[in-house]
Computed example of a mutant assay.
Amino acid sequence: MSSNGRRLRSTVIAAVVATTLSLTVAPAMSPAAATQGPTKTPSAVTATSLVYDKNPDDPTNSKLIVYRGKERLISYRAGSGTGSKNECTRNAGWIPNGNWKIKGKYPHYNGRYIKGYAVWLEDMPCSTGKKRKEMFIHSEMERNGKQGRSKARSWQDGDDYKSYGCVKLNPTNIEKMFKLLDSIGWPTHLRVVS
């Protein structure tokens, strides 16, 4: 990609972050603070947002970016899909663009296929109107966050960024992301762009 293309892409992402700030929340209030009266809504300067920037050249080499206000705090390599850019192809296509509501975050998720650190996203339609369901941000690990012995429970190489459509990070980075967002506040949505 040319330097002009990279600058344009950075400008577009900055605009998306600015418009996404209204979808974010500050850290939860303590019971003591709750009794002290109303609090201010988080400002655009301090709000946290999470943006998944899909790489059209290689869907398994995309970026999951954490912003605090307009400041880019960190970017993690992430993948979605098996290489297909068709967002409506179940179990192969990458995650559709849009604002995905975060339904839950779990450091010890114990699903049938997904275990350990997991962020559950609300079902959302793709371009044909067909819903993409059971979408997560996750990795490959055991429920306790440790590496297992089976291929499905241990991160081995770059092919592990492939998924059935979920956003996947390596185990070290998803743990770091959880610690960061636990400390600065979780957003309410994941914004997906390409």
Rank of each mutant, 00 (worst) to 15 (best):
S3L: 11
N4F: 06
N4W: 07
R6Y: 04
S10P: 00
V12C: 04
I13V: 15
A14R: 13
V17Y: 01
V17P: 02
T20F: 00
S22M: 09
S22Y: 05
L23K: 14
V25I: 08
A26Q: 13
A28K: 09
A34D: 00
T35I: 12
T35M: 10
G37C: 09
P42F: 02
S43Q: 06
S43T: 15
S43D: 11
T46F: 05
L50W: 07
V51E: 05
Y52N: 07
Y52R: 05
Y52Q: 07
D53F: 02
D58C: 06
V66E: 02
Y67W: 08
K70H: 11
R72S: 14
L73V: 14
G79Y: 02
G83E: 04
E87D: 12
C88G: 13
G93D: 02
P96E: 02
P96Y: 01
G98D: 01
N110K: 14
N110R: 14
Y113Q: 05
I114L: 02
I114Y: 12
G116S: 04
W120F: 05
M124Q: 15
M124P: 01
G129D: 03
G129L: 03
R132I: 02
R132Q: 11
R132G: 04
K133M: 09
E134A: 13
E134K: 07
M135V: 14
F136W: 13
H138V: 05
S139K: 04
G158C: 00
C166D: 03
C166L: 06
I174C: 08
M177C: 09
M177Y: 13
K179S: 14
L181Y: 08
P187N: 04
T188G: 14
H189R: 07
R191T: 15
